[in-house]
Design a protein around this nucleic acid. Structure first.
Lengths: 109, 109
DNA sequence: TCGATGTACATAGGTTTTCTACATAGGTGA
DNA sequence: TCACCTATGTAGAAAACCTATGTACATCGA
């Protein structure tokens, strides 16, 4: 109540992840940070949401992962899009625009 | 798999219902139809989603219901917004815009 | 008059997704 | 050495939605 929880709408997390990974190989932790910055602190992805989502997307063949050294830090799993993932991203973006446009229509009615 | 299911994003149904009821007393079935028309057939609210949502909103004190004759048809439950519901609608609309804007930022990044 | 269709409400059961909370571990700087 | 940041992960619970099904009344056409 004291704060706006910034909860994600179900279904948008995959889209946000795919879009963020599309910029090039990036590890999970970095994905969450990029989304946070790109959305101007509005979209905060919790770790407990992020990692299961990444595993889900990898299982579906949309992402592929590779363990690498992260800067001077510990090992990290770097994700990148597969061809299937790129296609899925296009579809999900189109769907989002369709959806958001429809909601806008209702809210303006 | 063969078709685009037009599934609703979790969290937006309440907003759509509140907005639709804000136009004046309307029964459940009519709410689904109005949303369908207003969104140009994009947002299709299933009955199995609609009625539990209406009960939920009534339980929360955002909607109030009254049984009335529906035209020449059978009895129907007409819903209208409570003061609390109107306030909630304002909040949810603001939140939606915040959220949709944030997603747009990420998608354009 | 009988059946199909449209209106209208409702619940049960299942799936998916997300959140909170916890657990682990390596590297860095004070 | 101790705290903090990076980084990955799982368990358990809650919420919301969908599919499928059921009821009932009214109307219209054959």
């Amino acid at each position: 109540m004291a704060d706006k929880k910034a909860e994600l709408l179900q279904g948008t997390l995959d889209l946000l992840i795919l879009k963020t990974v599309a910029h090039g190989p990036i590890h999970g932790y970095g994905i969450a940070q990029r989304i946070l910055v790109a959305s101007r602190e509005v979209l905060q992805v919790q770790q407990g949401s992020l990692y299961p989502a990444l595993h889900r997307l990898e299982r579906k063949g949309l992402l592929k992962a590779e363990w690498k050294q992260s800067g001077s830090g510990p090992m990290a799993k770097f994700y990148s899009l597969t061809a299937k993932g790129r296609k899925q991203l296009q579809e999900e973006m189109a769907q989002w625009h369709r959806y958001a446009g429809a909601v806008a229509l209702v809210l303006e009615s």
